[in-house]
Each structure stands twice: as C-alpha cells, then as structure tokens.
Amino acid sequence: MKNRLKTWLIFSFLTIFTLLTIYPVLNIISISLRTDNAFQSKSLSLWQFDEPYTDTNQNEIREADELFTDINDNGSWDKGSSFNSYKTLFTDTPFLKWVWNSFLVTLVVTLTGVVLASTAGYALSRFNFIGKQFTMVSLLTTQMFPATMLLLPFFILLSKLGLINSYVGLIVIYSSTALPFCIWQMKGYYDTIPPALEEAARLDGCGRFAAFYKIILPLSTPALVITALFSFMASWNEYVVAAIVLQDPELYTLPLGLKSFQASLATQWGLYAAGAVIVSIPVTILFISLAKYLVSGLTMGSVKG
C-alpha cells in the first residue's frame, strides 16, 4: 500500500514536471498553427477558431468597427489556426530535400561515431599504454576552444582543401565534434564491465578483437545507444559549421533550410516553427525506438550473478 502511494506520488510529480517541460514546445506548435505569421500572441491557447465577421465594406480585411462572433472568448477577433504553414513547407519549399540531405549526413556521422568511439573507448579502458593519459586529456581539450573562433580557420582550411560545398568536410567535422564525448562515454561504460569476461574468452581461444566484438560490445548496448543518439544530435541540429561549409542551396541540411526562413526583422515564423516541429519528430521517434535498448538492463545482472 505504501509502495503504491509512493508510485502515484512520483507519477503525479513527474506528470506535472513533464507538462511544465513541454510547455515551450506547445508554444512552438501554436506558432506553427497561427496564420498571422506572428511570433507572439496574447492568447495562451493552442488552437484558435476562425471567428466570422460581417465584412461591411467587402475588402476581406476585418476593420475594428466590423462585428464578429467571439468564439474563442478572449475579447479580440482571431483569424483561425490552420495547418497552412505545414502545407506550404512541403509544397512551396525544398523541405523534403533538406530532410534527405540531413538524413544522409547524419547517418554517416552516426555510423562513424559509433564505430570509432566504441573501439577507441575500449582501448582506453582496457590497456595501459604510453600516451593514454595524454590522449584522454587532449580529447577533452579539443572541446575547450570556443567554437566561434574556429570558424575562420575552418573556412580557410576547407577552401584550401576544396571541401567547401561538400559533405565530406561536414561529416569529418561533425564526427570529430561528437567523438571526444562518445569515447569518454564508452570508456566509462566499459570500465563497469569486469575484465574477467574477456579473460575467460581469451582462454577459450578468442582473439583480442573477437573478445571485444563478441563479448564486450553486445554487453554495452546502453552506452552504444547513447553514443548513437549523441552523434545523431550533434549533426542533426547543427547550424554554424554547416553555414560556412554549405553554400549551394541544393546541398542545404535541415537547420540551414530552416534558418533561411529567418531574416532580421522579417522572419517567416509560421514556416520556421512548423519546420522546427517536424525536425524534432525524428529525434523523438529515434529515442522511443532506442529506449527499449536503454532499458534492457538484462545483461549486467545476469553476468555478475
């Protein structure tokens, strides 16, 4: 009984907290549904009904003296919400192309990230070699320099190498920005797996790589999932580097495309918000589908038991 009460208390707390957390998201959704291309609104409700009015002078614009029915009950006339922004996004803009470009880049970056981080993390976790401490620290130091100051040298480097307007440059940079964290993450996880496991496998005649590949890797699913998720996030939403590397609109990734709706003092808020909502859907789906692996704590218990 006490336990159930506790569960419900926790559940209600989490529900309230979650609602607070997603409020800004709802805000973005409501912007994407608005028809006046405005970023702000006095109304807090998500959906607004189209309020009919008597168009006395028949100019299809509602003037202050023209009567209306206040369906939304907020004292002011509202032009209703609609999915127009989403429709425009898919029909009038190369949105699907951006999605495809982003998907390609992200896929390669994620794969590279998982492969390189799982191997490098393993080396750092299991072996004592000269330069290990140095490698660990210098991996970290690569994150310490303010990224904005790297833009100018990046540009010079990439244009000397002829990698402007190419995904190669972008993919190398993205993989490298995500890697240091992923390697650390993997190392931390490997550290929690007893080395006795590989030793047993080695005794049974497994090679070093096979022991890693067949025994340790399958046990590291939660960490691999985080690594994949992280590499994915590092490239899916990245804008600043993409903006210097990709100048040909044909090659734009999603963030670049989305930002093109934004102009100083005249942003297409409807399209911008609609795009943002759609951009976050794949991430959410990814997380839902990977959550299963995250939860599968089955390995560790059984191994050590």
Binding site: L116, A120, A123, L124, F145, F154, L157, T177, I183
Partner: peptide
C-alpha cells in the same frame, strides 16, 4: 600495445586533423 593503438588511431587521427590547424592559427 599495437592492438590498443590500432583501436585508438582512427578516432584520434580524425579529431586532431580537424582541430590542430585551427588551434595553431588562433
């Protein structure tokens, strides 16, 4: 330690290829 270096090299090479030049430039 060849095995360890072999596992480590691709990641480290990639990271430093991207970082070294901008860093020295700065």
């Amino acid at each position: 330690n060849r095995f360890a270096y072999f596992m480590l090299l691709p990641a480290v090479a990639g990271i430093f290829a991207v970082v070294i030049f901008p860093f020295i430039y700065n």
